[in-house]
């Protein structure tokens, strides 16, 4: 986790969310999102919406858009598998904007073999659904990438995902 002490990238993401007017932050927790979730929960200008499963996030963000608010959706890579039909048959069918921030498992130093198949599937599955997918592995790339992809999401009504690599987050230790 050395990168997080060198550069506070979760604070940078939170700053981008504020600059770009994100009001609803829906999430299923992941260790990699812990600090960002805390920052959003503590922010009176944002509504943090914990979900029981990631597909609820497609509904919440669609409803937020209908009501005139911007949202962002945080999840772990395993959660991508939980929301495929909602992405396809709600978000994509209606061309709702979607910004997903996905903390990765199943790559770069993974120690749990059960995480490997979904981790490998994340990018091709999302691309098959028509999302643009950008992966970030360096702390000093996080802010510019999130800013560009989030901005594009709401200026073009497109669906986009930023994957935060375990190279950035640090691989989970099993010992």
């Amino acid at each position: 986790m050395s990168n997080s002490t060198e550069f506070d990238w979760p604070a940078a993401i939170h700053r981008v969310f504020k600059q770009q007017g994100v009001r609803q932050v829906a999430y299923v927790p992941d260790a990699g999102h812990r600090r960002l979730i805390e920052l959003c929960r503590a922010d009176d200008e944002m509504r943090a919406v914990p979900l029981t499963t990631e597909e609820e996030g497609m509904g919440v963000l669609a409803g937020a858009w209908l009501g005139g608010e911007r949202g962002a959706l945080l999840m772990q890579s395993s959660g991508v598998g939980n929301c495929i039909n909602a992405i396809a048959s709600l978000t994509r069918a209606c061309q709702f904007p979607l910004f997903m921030l996905v903390t990765m498992r199943g790559e770069w130093g993974e120690g749990n073999p059960w995480q490997i198949p979904m981790g490998r599937a994340v990018q091709p599955v999302l691309e098959t659904l028509g999302l643009r997918v950008t992966s970030v592995a360096q702390a000093d790339d996080v802010e510019s990438t999130v800013s560009a992809m989030l901005g594009m999401t709401y200026t073009t009504d497109s669906a986009n995902a930023v994957l935060l690599s375990q190279r950035l987050l640090g691989a989970k230790a099993f010992q």
Partner: peptide
């Protein structure tokens, strides 16, 4: 009326995001 023709299981979530925004 926002009619869902898909997204089975998401109607309440859509309503929630809308209610929070409005």
């Amino acid at each position: 009326n926002f009619y869902l023709w898909g997204g089975m299981g998401t109607a309440v979530s859509v309503g929630l995001g809308l209610a929070l925004a409005q």
